[in-house]
Design a protein around this nucleic acid. Structure first.
Lengths: 195, 195
DNA sequence: GTGTTACCGGACGCAGGCGTCCACTTGGCT
DNA sequence: AGCCAAGTGGACGCCTGCGTCCGGTAACAC
């Protein structure tokens, strides 16, 4: 979508580019954003120079690698908004977002990082958070979402979610699900009674 | 308490040792456990060799540095147990633990790490978790703590809490407090109604 | 005061990540 | 078939963190 700058790559270069993105995608998902550039290059079967020539900053690679995840994130909130019961939609968003982030360590980091230059992801982030705000407003009207909920609470919980990291993927998913369930509990309106 | 091995240090060595622990303590608290040994040595005004001679493994340094935090953690759960209202005690434990961990990044990592050889901290951890289990059992009896709570939920939330990391210490404390409040909400027994 | 020895810290070599340069290869046009 | 610019990856130099060695210093006993 942004690679029409100048003059179209040669076929072999284009192939390498694809392999690089693929490698980056799987490594970011499994290990997080701090995998060495070298490792990505090796996995892609490519020299370091090629990687750096195509993606001078790691940022560029990140933006490209998480395009699909961003799309999926959009889909999640859109479906949440489409749900007839806003509270149920809200819950679904939390559950599915947690699962997405559980399966992709790197995406969480990228999504939460406030680093400049990530215009694409930042725009995505804004859209998603705005949508959640809308959904939350509706959910509050039903009285099921606590009135003092703010979008920052969700960000807070996403930050927190990144802290739960288990050894096996199975354990990771289970823990994430439990976390999502607890988070939903935390956001549910408590029927008056104080402390 | 464990430094009577063999023959008592010379006065200057003992002084260095103290400075090293002090440096490690403040650096661990501020930066987490991954501060380079070199940095600790520099802060303590000591050469790397001295640091390595006194604490061959970083583990040894960690154990010593967090002795006080461990004690404070004990105090927190003990006071929680002493509270007449178990649910209130339980809440206090969560609040104060979150604050302790918010002020000391390294301690969280040390407490949660399952690394072997950390017998001292592991014992502490066991004591604390057992105490929480007792407190939780009492709190459940009052019907205020949800019946399906397990100690692992608290560990999960502590892991999660480590994910919330803000730039300034003030923001960090505020976020931690909010997180603690939401966690307590999550653990509160929900009055029947499903989903 | 003096000797001994515990103790010190600068300097060393190793490992791994970084970004770049350049001699060679190869796709694609004619 | 042949040319040549686009493209490649190995090799280089830099930096940072690691753990250890060793010539020098000063604490403590006498």
């Amino acid at each position: 979508m942004s690679t029409d700058s100048s003059h179209a790559l040669r076929s072999d270069a284009l192939d390498n580019r694809r392999r690089i993105i693929e490698a980056a995608r799987s490594l970011f998902a499994a290990e997080g954003m701090d995998v060495p550039m070298r490792t990505i290059a090796r996995r892609a079967g490519v020299g370091p120079a090629t990687l750096y020539r195509r993606f001078p900053a790691k940022q560029d690679l990140v933006a490209e690698a998480f395009e699909e995840e961003a799309r999926r994130c959009h889909a999640i909130v859109d479906e949440g908004l489409a749900e007839p019961d806003p509270w149920r939609g809200f819950c679904r968003v939390i559950e599915r977002t947690c699962e997405l982030h559980a399966r992709n360590r790197g995406f969480t980091e990228a999504f939460l990082s406030t680093l400049a230059g990530q215009t694409e992801l930042m725009a995505s982030r804004k859209y998603i958070l705005d949508s959640v705000a809308t959904l939350a407003a509706r959910a509050k009207e039903t009285g099921r979402l606590r009135a003092d909920f703010v979008v920052d609470d969700l960000v807070l919980m996403l930050m927190a979610h990144r802290g739960v990291r288990m050894a096996s993927e199975a354990a990771q998913l289970a823990a994430s699900r439990r976390f999502a369930a607890l988070t939903i509990q935390a956001f549910r309106a408590s029927p008056d009674h104080v402390e």
